[in-house]
Design a protein around this nucleic acid. Structure first.
Length: 256
DNA sequence: ATGGCCGGGAAGCCCGGA
C-alpha cells in the first residue's frame, strides 16, 4: 500500500489549526510532521486532531520551537532526545510507523553568521547526522533545515551567498548528508528548476516569488527506494492567515 | 537592497523568526 507523508513548519499550531484542518481534509495525509508548534504539549490541539482520526506524538515547549508527528497509525519507539544536544530546545521527535523511521526536525535558524547560534546550528547538523546514521532500516529525516541546499533553491543565490540559510558552511553540512548516503528526495523528482517551501511574510515575497527551499526530505537508500513521489504544495501559503512555510509531501510504498 | 510581517508572552513592547 501507498502512504502519504508531509512535513510542514506551521509557525504556531494554535494560530494555524483552521488552516491545518483544511489542508488535512484536502490532502488526507497518513502522517504529518509539524515544526514550530510554539506550544507546550498541554497546549497542543490533540483533541481536534484526534477528532480528525489522528494520533499525536508531541515534543512541545512554551513560546518557541516544538515539533510533533501526527499519524493515522499509532507511532512506535518515540524519541525526543538528540544525543543530549540542546535539551532545553524542543526541536526533534522521531518515531517508527509502517516499518519506517521518521526523524522530524526543526534545525536552529542560527540568527546571524557572527552570532553564537550559528556555530550551534552547524553542530546541530553533525549531531543529527550521527543520530540518523545509527538508525537501522529505512530512515527519513524531514523538517525545516533552515538551509537552501543549492542555487536553484533560493531566489537570489548571488546576493544571498554567505548569508544566514545560504552560507557555504551550511550548504556543506547538507552535502555531508548526501555523502553519508541520504538523498534530497524532492530533487530526485524535480532535478532542476526553482522551487521554494518558504516565503517571508514581508515585502510581498510570495506574490513576487521570492522564497527559499528550506524544508527538506532526506532519505537513506532503503527509504529512497520505496518513495514514489514528492512535491511541494504551494496552495496553503496563499490561504488566509497562512504559515510562512508550505507543506512538502511525499509518498512511499510500504508492505502494510 | 533596505524592510515592510507574524506569533507568543508579557505587557502596552520585545524577542525570535529567516
Amino acid at each position: 500500500m501507498k502512504i502519504k507523508i508531509a512535513t510542514w513548519n506551521v509557525n504556531s499550531v494554535r494560530a494555524r489549526m483552521t488552516v491545518i484542518a483544511s489542508w488535512i481534509e484536502k490532502e488526507k495525509p497518513d502522517i504529518l510532521c509539524l515544526q514550530e508548534l510554539k506550544a507546550t504539549e498541554e497546549q497542543f490541539p490533540r483533541q481536534e486532531l484526534c477528532d480528525l482520526g489522528y494520533h499525536s506524538a508531541v515534543n512541545g515547549q512554551v513560546r518557541w520551537n516544538g515539533v510533533a508527528i501526527v499519524s493515522l497509525a499509532p507511532l512506535a519507539d518515540v524519541e525526543t532526545d538528540l544525543k543530549g544536544f540542546l535539551p532545553e530546545q524542543k526541536r526533534m521527535i522521531s518515531g517508527s510507523v509502517h516499518g519506517i523511521r521518521l526523524i522530524n526536525v526543526y534545525v536552529p535558524n542560527g540568527r546571524d553568521i557572527d552570532h553564537p547560534g550559528f556555530q550551534e546550528k552547524l553542530r546541530y547538523f553533525e549531531v543529527l547526522r550521527e543520530y540518523a546514521l545509527a538508525s537501522p532500516g529505512p530512515t527519513v529525516i524531514l523538517g525545516d533545515f533552515n538551509v537552501a541546499p543549492g542555487p536553484v533553491d533560493t531566489h537570489s543565490p548571488e546576493e544571498q551567498d554567505g548569508m544566514i540559510c545560504y552560507h557555504p558552511l551550511e550548504r556543506e553540512q547538507i552535502s555531508q548528508f548526501f555523502s553519508a548516503g541520504f538523498t534530497d528526495v524532492f530533487r530526485r523528482f524535480y532535478p532542476e528548476g526553482k522551487a521554494y517551501s518558504w516565503w517571508d511574510y514581508r515585502a510581498g515575497s510570495f506574490r513576487r516569488k521570492r522564497g527559499m527551499r528550506l524544508d527538506l526530505v532526506l532519505a537513506n537508500r532503503e527509504a529512497d527506494e520505496i518513495i514514489t513521489n514528492c512535491f511541494i504544495d504551494m496552495e496553503p501559503r496563499g490561504w488566509e492567515r497562512p504559515s510562512d512555510h508550505t507543506p512538502v509531501v511525499f509518498e512511499m510504498a510500504v508492505s502494510e
